[in-house]
Amino acid sequence: MNEQLLPPELVARLERLHLATRKVFHGRFKGERRSRRKGQSVEFADYRDYVPGDDLRFIDWNGYARLDRLYLKLFLEEEDIHFYLLLDASESMNFGQPTKLQWAVRLAAALGFVGLVRGDRVSVHVLRGSRVEASPPLRGRVSVPRLVEFLEQVAPGGPTDLAQALKRFALASSGKGIVVLVSDLLDKSGYEDALRALLARELDIYLVHVLSQEELDPELSGDLRLIDAEDADVAEVTVTVGLLRRYKQTVENFRRGARIFCTRRGIAYLGVDNTAAMEKVVLRHLRQRGLVQ
């Protein structure tokens, strides 16, 4: 196992976690994950009145003996869930120290590990331009090396076309499950259409918006010719204190706009930078947002 992607001390902590979802999904297979759906397991959940047609096996006969009324015993359903990890691997993600993509891969590894050890189906989709490169669905702890191997192969390149890529993903995937999208959202055509494409499906969507320190607080000055790494677009600017102040305000507005867009549509938003500690992100921020428990 690659210790850079999954350090042992992080793995030790991740093993105690499991993925959670804020929506009720039907898994394809029984899993180790407790569902909000009531079902067949050994863990008692609740009683309810018997109605004709209920499975007689779940009637609480002891209760009927004492109370002379029919009650049905409900048990927590344990099932699996499809966990999609979407990584933006456009050229713009190849900036920062570590690069935003490297950071995204580490997060994917950590979350993928949590999903695999809890028996969920995990698949990684790399968005490069309008293309989507997906890993095969992985399941079970045994698939962790394969996940790591796949993630190690992820390399940056190409422009960002989030809208097209996510549309493709939405059409190709069966739909239900948890989606974690890690991207910098630096798409000149906008991120809104892309996220709307995901919303069409019944997915529990998490957006991890990662920006590098160089983007948040650029150390630039003077007359510059800024060249876009993705499309070689040129912006001529004279960077002054005033312009930097303005730029930071723009970045802040950009992040706030994304957060508001997501919140209004039930997408959990987490804005981070590329130096954020993985433990803190997973164990605190994503736990607060209900992705892991």
Binding site: M93, K188, L220, L224, I227
Partner: peptide, 16 residues
């Protein structure tokens, strides 16, 4: 002007 490669000119263009 000194050329500098940036991840994206998106935010800079929005700024100016």
């Amino acid at each position: 002007r000194r050329p500098v490669e940036v991840p994206s000119t998106y935010l800079w263009l929005r700024t100016v």
